[in-house]
Write a protein that binds this DNA or RNA. Structure first.
Lengths: 331, 331
DNA sequence: CTCGTGGTCGATCATTTGTTCGTGCTTTGA
DNA sequence: TCAAAGCACGAACAAATGATCGACCACGAG
C-alpha cells in the first residue's frame, strides 16, 4: 500500500525533527504542513513501527532493562540491579550491591517518625549496613528476624542488627535462638520463652524487612556457618530445596518445603510479610536459583541484586516460557 | 571525581527510565528518590554528556540531517531532501523529487484567495507540475519568468506554465521571448514590447516562484536546447560560470556574472525575489555546483533537492571550512 | 567568628505534549 | 444515487515537561 508508505515517510521525518532535530511539535507541524495533533499521530506511528531507536550509552543500560523486566514480572515495588564489575573478579559487584542496598535502606531510615525495621542475616545484609553512612535516628528500632546463635553457641558474625543499631543509635532486638533447633521440642521451648516472644512481637511490628537469600548446596551459608549439619543439608537437597529465606527452605516454585527441618526453624514465619515490604538483597549467579525461587513464591516486594543474578533470572524465566515478552521500549 | 560518576550513573538510570522505559518524570523521581526537578537535571546531564543516542531507522533520516544543515546554513524557509533511490539508476530520485516539489507547490495552490505564481523552466519544474494532482483554482494566475522560445523559434517543451494552468484552470502568462536575445538591441526591443511588459508586470506581482537550476557545462540545458550557442557556452565557461537561474549565469559565489550574455538575457531579474520566496527544484550530484552557487548567492528561500546534490553541498561547504559544525542532536 | 560566595535544591509558572471527542469527509455496498 | 460505516481531522482540554527564581547549606576568606 503506497499510501501507508507515504505516511511512514512523514512519520520518519517528524520523528527525526522531534528526536534528533529537537524541534517542537508546533514547528514540525508548520514545516510538514499538518496540524499539531497530526504530528502527534505521526510520532506515535513512528514509535509503534519501531522507527525510533533509543540507546543509552552507559553500563547501567542493561541493568535497567533487567530491573524493569523482573520488577514487572513479579510485581515488585522496586528492583535495583547493579552492574557487574567490568574488570576483575566475577564477584566484584559485592561492593556495588552493598551500596545500592544501603541507599534503599537509608530511604526508610531517613524519615523522622519512629520506625521498626527488621533484618535477616547473611553477608549481603551485613555488607549493606556496613555501607550505610552513620545517621542519627535513636527513635528507630532494629530487630532480627532470625536467630544469631549457632548450634555450638557462638554468635553469627554476619548479623547486621548490632551494626545498624550502632549507626542509628536506636534500640536493638536480637532473637535469642539458633536458626534451627535441635529438635521439635527444643524449638517449641525456645519459641515459647518470654524473651523470644517479646522480640518476636517487635519483629511483627516491623514495617519493612531487609533479608538475605541463601543457596542450598555444599556452599550454603546455613551449612558453612554450622546452623545445620551435613545430614540436614543432605535432607534439604533430597527434597529439592534450591534456596532459603530466614532459614525456611524453598522449592523451585518458592513454596516453603515441609520437612523435618522446617518444623525446627525458629525464625519468624515469612507469612507475616505478606502485606508489608520484604526486601531481598543478594547477588552473584550462584544466588540466581535461590532468588528466583523467592520471587516465584511471591514473597518479595523489593529486590537489590546484581547483573549476574538478574540475567540468570530473566533467562531462566524466558526459557521456561512463562513470559516471552519483555517490556517494549515505548520511545 | 567519584561524586560525578555517581551522578552520571543516576543520570543514565533516569535517561533509561524516561526514554526507553517510557516512565514519566514523576515516576522516575519517586523511584530514584529525588525531586522532579532533580530528574530534570539528571536528564539534561545525560543528554549533555551524550549518553542518549537516538537513531531513526528509515532512509529519510540521512536526508533530514542534510536538510537541516542546508536550511540552517543558508537561511531557507524550508529545504526538502528526498532520498536517493536505493536500487537502480543514480538518477532514480527524479520521481521523488517531482512529488516532493509538487507537494510544496500544492501547499501554495491550496489556498482559495487568488494567487499569482511564477515558474521557471527545466525538467525539474516540468516534472513537478506533472506530478501535481488536478486542483480546481481558476482564481490563480500562472506566469513564466523566462522566455520559452528557442532561437530557432520552437517552443521549449519543458515549459510548465501551460501544464500547471491546465491543472488549475487558471489564467496563464507566457513570456514572449527567447531566453537569450541575439543582441543587446534585440533584447531591449523585446523587453520594450507592450506584450512583454504586461506579462512581466504580472510576474512582478507573483507571490512565489518555483524555478529550476541549470548547470553550465557541455550538458547544460541552456545549450542542449539551443537557447545559447556553443560559442556562448564557451564564454560562460571562460568566465567560470557554474550554474544559472532563469538564464542568469552565476559564479561559484552566486554572483550574477556580468558578461555579454547577461546583457541579452530577457528573463526577469533575480532581484525581484529578494523579498519573496524563490524556490529552487533540482537534484542529482551534477546539479550540486549550480545549486551551491544559487545558495551562496542567497537567492533562494526554499529548496527541493535530492540526497546526491544535498550531500555534495554539505561536503563541499564543510571542506571549504565555512561552517564546521552541523546542528547538534538535542534529543 | 562572621561574612560573603558558590552551588545545590525545590516551589512555581509558562510551554509543550498527549488525549479525547465531535465533525465532516471518503468509501463501500445496496 | 443514496445510506451507512469507517476514517481522518482539528478544537479543546488534561498531563507532563522545561525554566526560572528564591532559599538554603557548605565552604573558605577575612
Amino acid at each position: 500500500m503506497d499510501k501507508f508508505e507515504r505516511k511512514l515517510d512523514q512519520a520518519a521525518r517528524a520523528a527525526w525533527l522531534s528526536y534528533v532535530g529537537g524541534h517542537t511539535q508546533d514547528e514540525i507541524a508548520s514545516q510538514l504542513g499538518v496540524s499539531r495533533p497530526g504530528v502527534q499521530r505521526l510520532l506515535a506511528l513512528a514509535r509503534q513501527e519501531g522507527l525510533v531507536k533509543v540507546h543509552i550509552d552507559h553500563p547501567i543500560a542493561g541493568c535497567m532493562a533487567l530491573s524493569e523486566a523482573i520488577g514487572e514480572r513479579y510485581g515488585l515495588e522496586f528492583c535495583d540491579v547493579v552492574p557487574a564489575d567490568p574488570q576483575g573478579a566475577p564477584d566484584g559487584s559485592t561492593r556495588y550491591l552493598a551500596v545500592a542496598a544501603a541507599e534503599r535502606l537509608s530511604w526508610y531510615l531517613d524519615r523522622s517518625e519512629p520506625l521498626t525495621l527488621s533484618l535477616g542475616t547473611g553477608r549481603a545484609v551485613r555488607g549493606m549496613v556496613e555501607a550505610l553512612s552513620r545517621i542519627d535516628r535513636p527513635q528507630h528500632r532494629v530487630v532480627s528476624l532470625v536467630g544469631n546463635v549457632a548450634r555450638d553457641g557462638s554468635s553469627n558474625r554476619y548479623d547486621g542488627v548490632m551494626v545498624l543499631a550502632d549507626k542509628t543509635g536506636g534500640e536493638r532486638f536480637l532473637l535469642p535462638a539458633p536458626v534451627v533447633a535441635g529438635s521439635v521440642e527444643e524449638s517449641e521451648a525456645l519459641c515459647g520463652q518470654r524473651l523470644y516472644q517479646s522480640v518476636a512481637e517487635v519483629a511483627r511490628e516491623a514495617e519493612v524487612a531487609f533479608i538475605g537469600v541463601g543457596r542450598i548446596d555444599r556452599q550454603a551459608t546455613l551449612f558453612q556457618d554450622h546452623f545445620i549439619s551435613e545430614a540436614e543439608l543432605d535432607e534439604l537437597l533430597e527434597r529439592e530445596a534450591v534456596g532459603e529465606l530466614l532459614g525456611w527452605p524453598l522449592s523451585r516454585d518458592g513454596e516453603v518445603i515441609d520437612c523435618s527441618i522446617t518444623r525446627r526453624v525458629t525464625s519468624l514465619p515469612l507469612t507475616i510479610f505478606r502485606d508489608r515490604p520484604l526486601v531481598a538483597v543478594g547477588g552473584g549467579r550462584d544466588k540466581g536459583p535461590a532468588l528466583l525461587a523467592a520471587l516465584r513464591g511471591g514473597w518479595l516486594k523489593g529486590l537489590v541484586t546484581d547483573e549476574h543474578a538478574a540475567r540468570y533470572i530473566v533467562e531462566t524465566e524466558r526459557g521456561s516460557g512463562l513470559d516471552g515478552a519483555g517490556p517494549a521500549a515505548k520511545v
